[in-house]
């Protein structure tokens, strides 16, 4: 059961005017898995979700979910979705919103269960106008899950959530997964994808540049960034290693390396006036640049993320 495929995305491309937002993306989604789609802004994450939700027309390729066409009501009845940027009508209460969305589904969760899963107890009678940003996100999450969906789309669900809310969101997603729901999640938080996903797809400039389990992905991007001030000229620093990635920005030098302790040892041999030294994990953006360089593919202008 674990590896049953519920959705096929076959060689899908999407063009906006001249921009190729998605370029020949193929992907299978398995039953009961959490699939993280990770990528910087403009990578095509939201475009991919919108194609699966039937909100956009494909330029080429095929998408089939539960054997149905995206956008059909039969498919929508088996899915739940949380989109970016959903405002709520001000003058309805939390309870009214949820009860209305529950009515759209044949077998929704019990009302109380939805309240518990989304953490909305105590604010059920409040108008959406009076909710905080985090509470609104939780309500939108409740609307996405209320129908007991077989497939749940979450487009950047934790944007605007505080850490506590985010942790409880993660907890709920795991609970739903245990219940057999498949989840497609876009995020640009590496940590979120890592915590939740069984499988991660990394998108950049409309292409899948990498996919695998979180551990496999992390093994590829465990690069550290070493940053410091030194009066030693760049040419001398270059002698630390022959394939060293070193750049200078302002008065700082930056070195990226997978073996930071070795580099540091050599660095102190070459230069004796190192100041303001920091060693940080490479940001996701850096990882993308690396992975992109590691993939000798032609680059296209990234499409605007919609």
């Amino acid at each position: 059961m674990q590896h049953e495929h519920i959705a096929q995305i076959h060689q899908v491309s999407k063009k906006f005017d001249e921009n190729l937002a998605l370029d020949q993306v193929s992907l299978d989604i398995r039953s009961g898995e959490v699939l993280g789609i990770l990528g910087p802004n403009g990578a095509g994450k939201t475009t991919l979700i919108n194609l699966m939700l039937g909100r956009m027309a494909l330029t080429t390729g095929e998408v089939s979910i539960f054997g149905l066409k995206p956008g059909s009501i039969e498919l929508k009845r088996q899915c739940g979705a949380m989109l970016q940027l959903s405002g709520l009508p001000d003058m309805s209460t939390v309870k009214e919103h949820i009860e209305l969305f529950m009515s759209y589904y044949a077998n929704p969760f019990a009302y109380q269960k939805i309240i518990d899963l989304a953490g909305l107890a105590g604010i059920e009678d409040q108008y959406s106008k009076t909710l905080s940003g985090g509470q609104k996100q939780r309500l939108l999450f409740a609307l996405a899950i209320c129908g007991n969906p077989k497939l749940l789309f979450l487009d950047e669900p934790s944007v605007g959530m505080d850490i506590e809310t985010r942790k409880s969101l993660w907890h709920t997603i795991n609970e739903l997964k245990a219940n057999g729901t498949s989840v497609i999640l876009t995020t640009h938080y590496l940590e979120e994808a890592d915590q939740l996903s069984d499988r991660i797809i990394m998108l950049n400039q409309g292409k899948i540049i990498h996919q695998g389990t979180p551990d496999e992905i992390k093994a590829n991007i465990n690069t550290k960034k070493i940053r410091f001030i030194s009066s030693t000229p760049l040419a001398e620093l270059m002698s630390i290693g022959d394939k060293l990635k070193i750049t200078s920005s302002g008065k700082y030098y930056e070195i990226q390396s997978k073996d930071s302790s070795k580099i540091l040892r050599k660095l102190f041999q070459v230069s004796d006036d190192i100041q303001d030294l920091t060693v940080t994990g490479a940001a996701l953006e850096d990882a993308f640049i690396q992975l992109n360089q590691a993939n000798p593919m032609k680059t296209n202008a990234a499409g605007e993320e919609l």
Binding site: L53, G54, R55, I73, K76, R77, C79, G80, A81, L83, Q84, L85, S86, G87, L88, P89, F101, Y104, Y105, L140, L143, G147, F153
Partner: peptide, 15 residues
């Protein structure tokens, strides 16, 4: 439509 609510209803199974 402007606030994105219409889009959410559109992807929901609301007839």
């Amino acid at each position: 439509r402007g606030q994105g609510w219409f889009n959410l209803k559109e992807v929901s199974p609301m007839p």
